[in-house]
Design a protein around this nucleic acid. Structure first.
Length: 109
DNA sequence: ACCATGACTCCAT
DNA sequence: CATGGAGCCATGG
């Protein structure tokens, strides 16, 4: 279960107004290939209020259609409430809202 | 150990 | 840009 706890820890570290993608979480948790397991971990352990899983989106900024909390509509609502703009296609502008922690170098393009 | 599934990601068309 | 197939790995039957 070590990987799970790492995932939860990383997700909880995501600051408000920012979003992270599964690959990022997986990489921070130790394995870049665990993107699917990250989503699976959040799915089997939806701790409401403890893990801001609504800040975790696809690499292109798309919201997960299988969101456990009533749907992506709720997720969009929560993100918008934090200042993250989500368009009608449920896609976040990753170039502006992507969580910058270890990919800061990526912004230096 | 094998097969099926999945909140992912990459590459080809 | 949208869609489909393949690769990826943990979990469950």
């Amino acid at each position: 279960m070590g990987f799970f706890e790492e995932v939860y820890k990383v997700v909880k570290m995501i600051p408000p107004g920012k979003v992270a993608n599964y690959g990022q979480i997986a990489r921070l948790a130790g394995n870049s290939k665990m993107a699917r397991q990250v989503g699976w971990a959040l799915h089997v352990n939806p701790y409401p209020g403890q893990i801001p899983c609504h800040r975790v989106v696809m690499k292109d900024g798309s919201l997960t259609k299988s969101f456990a909390f009533g749907g992506i509509c709720v997720q969009k609502q929560m993100l918008m409430d934090e200042g993250v703009f989500v368009d009608d296609n449920f896609v976040v502008d990753m170039t502006k809202y992507k969580w910058d922690t270890e990919d800061s170098y990526e912004k230096g393009i």
